[in-house]
Design a binder for these strands. Structure first.
Lengths: 410, 410
DNA sequence: GTGAAAGCGCTAACAG
DNA sequence: CTGTTAGCGCTTTCAC
């Protein structure tokens, strides 16, 4: 099988072994060169001429013909030490290094040897090669988080929570930048970019999921329909309860004419909010509810609120918004129309982003524990990956009353 | 070398080959079982008893003794096909599959064969194993982005830009959640969680870098001191020019008494701003400049502005803030003190976050193209990795005049 | 208590 | 045009 020429250690000469011209230089030439390169050659190895030659004429810019990604071959300045290097320095076998570095040595390797390995590793700046470990282990300790734009503070918080829990468990988080708006992901290979163990996805990113689901990885859904069966677990907010609380709050302040500035997103969480609002008002005679859809941006909230406040008929006294961003826009609209918030019109938000306290008046809103949902989602995924049952979650929400709501003027 | 028992394909029985009791069951037992597990065994493989036994008593919750991460062994529902499976189905060699999937087949594999491979891959739902590819290639097509909390919209935008360019080049982005505030990263191994090709870091995350720099990977710094030599490239905003423009704008409006609400962060970008402001004012006789430090949060901006506006002596007529968040806080402070913005006091921000147009009055601010810096940073890193020179950048900034500034009252 | 060996799935050189 | 082969660096048995 002719494999003996390498395992002897010859090509890895550190300072010893300067001899041993390979017995079959002629045939092993190019192959050896390739290997030396691929290895991030550790030795001083003045690479033989064969190397440059093997790269083809010029050795520089090929690849233009293939249309493949550009090379990324980079200098990789500090050639990386492998466990074999550590073994050689420590005077032990490579397996022992693996045992020690993996903290699996107790009772199998003497304390003295372990320390020798550790110090050799330290001196060489050894860090295990994750690709190799993942390959061997068949998993990557990596989870994919699929959310809409992180520029939305809410999802940035979800990420923060998920990343924290992941870090505590030695798991990495890869973000999938779910395409803005709709449509399946452009690049189906994006999901393959890393080896993944599982996926956490927001309902708002549901569109991207079709492209991602390939592979049948465990999926934890966030803030989405618990009925959907294909998921390993679902972690939700009790948004219906939140909406009920907002409504009760406004009803108690005497409001009867409401407009719902509804997020223009086809997602479970917003359907639930709309229904909870309608249900809560249906129980109270003499109430009125209109709905204005709006994209999740200040300018759109502003326009929707303008429509709501200028439509024929009695003006609503309360604008219930699906989101703080919308609510900020609504406040601006009110003031542009010469109305005061909250004296002439009350406005409520949802999420309790930092925006809620940055604007004036500060927003009465429903606080959704975004980080907590990220944490719970990651915990659920870890549980599933660990064959433990994932606890079902509906995280409690909380009405936060601030300055944007007051007694109904009418 | 006794390796022939596998390459025959026996353990991978799809529906054929139900025979072939391994010739050396007795000795290969545990090893075979281990292999079957590690492989995400494709076959129907009712795993032999030896498997359960190999796991130790109960087969369930060991690991408690070792203190290692919990298992993550998960069911991995759809056992993943390998290139060998594809090869078998397509009736070609495994190498051919690799060629075809890697789009390197032109002129080497017939169109007919290539199509056969592709259809086999499709039918098996084959996706190449990235860990294996990375291991073989010695790189991971992955860059680490080190920024402070993504909940700051500015950094979320940087990420967006970087991730977009990365995606266009088939490169993944891993986020390093630089620890809030200070101190080196808690978990030095976090950086090893993936195999990395390079690093992009914000100057505000400079603290975390010490922990990350290990490995000598190419480093691109964002918005930081171009003098620092250890970096492969630096991508900056022309923040000095931005500060000059703000100052000129306010001077033109007649302002002479300024307070700088300075970000309480020891970072190049803020030092530059402070200096540019001082320089611009020094040239104009009769101007006054105080500085109030503040953490980057609305509440801190508010407090700092309160201090600035209530300190003994003539009140400043303009508050120049290092950040829109600070500016939002400053506006709130002014109003709490019964001052109108901009009539009594002008306020300016920096960044042009969405917050700048969410508040009222909308903020006059310096727009920093955050996504562009992310894009340029990633491009620079890709260039370095590709042995191309990275173009030096100082991205242009732009003063955006809105409602928070007007003629000086005094 | 330590070492030898196999092999994870892939790529690329080379032989046919 | 296709197949054979070596081996990336690691983990884990099993033999000593």
């Amino acid at each position: 099988m002719g494999a003996q020429d390498d395992d002897s250690g010859a090509p890895r000469q550190r300072d010893g072994d300067p001899d041993r011209t390979p017995p079959d230089e002629a045939t092993a030439g190019r192959q050896g060169a390739e290997r030396a390169r691929a290895r991030n050659n550790n030795g001083t190895g003045t690479v033989p001429q064969a190397d440059a030659a093997a790269d083809g004429p010029g050795g520089g810019s090929r690849d233009h013909t293939t249309g493949r990604w550009p090379s990324i071959r980079g200098p990789r300045t500090g050639a990386r030490a492998t466990s074999r290097d550590v073994a050689r320095v420590a005077g032990v076998s490579q397996a022992t290094v693996s045992l020690v570095m993996g903290e699996k040595w107790r009772g199998r390797v003497s304390e003295r040897t372990a320390e020798a390995v550790r110090s050799a590793a330290r001196s060489l700046g050894y860090r295990p090669n994750l690709a190799a470990r993942n390959l061997r282990l068949g998993r990557a300790r990596t989870a994919l988080l699929v959310v809409p734009a992180l520029t939305n503070e809410f999802f940035a918080r979800v990420h923060t929570g998920a990343a924290r829990v992941a870090a505590e468990h030695g798991v990495g988080v890869l973000l999938y930048p779910s395409p803005e708006g709709v449509g399946p992901a452009r690049d189906p290979f994006a999901s393959a970019r890393a080896t993944l163990d599982g996926i956490i996805a927001s309902s708002m990113a549901a569109d991207a999921l079709a492209a991602i689901r390939e592979g049948g990885l465990p999926l934890v859904m966030l803030d989405s329909d618990p009925q959907r069966a294909e998921t390993a677990a679902t972690v939700n907010f009790d948004v219906a309860e939140g909406m009920r609380q907002v409504t009760e709050h406004l009803l108690a302040l005497g409001h009867r004419r409401f407009t719902h500035l509804a997020a223009d997103v086809d997602s479970w969480t917003f359907h639930v909010r709309a229904r909870a609002l309608a249900d809560a008002l249906r129980r109270v005679p003499g109430t009125e509810l209109h709905t204005e859809p709006a994209a999740l941006a200040v300018a759109d909230g502003l326009r929707a609120a303008e429509r709501a406040l200028t439509r024929p008929g009695a003006r609503p006294t309360a604008l219930i918004c699906d989101d703080d961003i919308l609510a900020a826009g609504a406040c601006k609209a009110a003031r542009r129309l010469g109305l005061r918030v909250p004296d002439d019109v009350s406005v409520t938000g949802f999420d309790d982003l930092s925006l809620a306290t940055a604007v004036e008046p500060e927003l009465t809103t429903v606080r959704l524990p975004a980080e907590a949902v990220g944490e719970a989602g990651m915990r659920a995924l870890l549980a599933v990956l660990d064959d433990r049952p994932a606890a079902a979650h509906a995280l409690p929400v909380e009405l936060v009353v601030r300055g944007s709501t007051s007694n109904s003027p009418g």
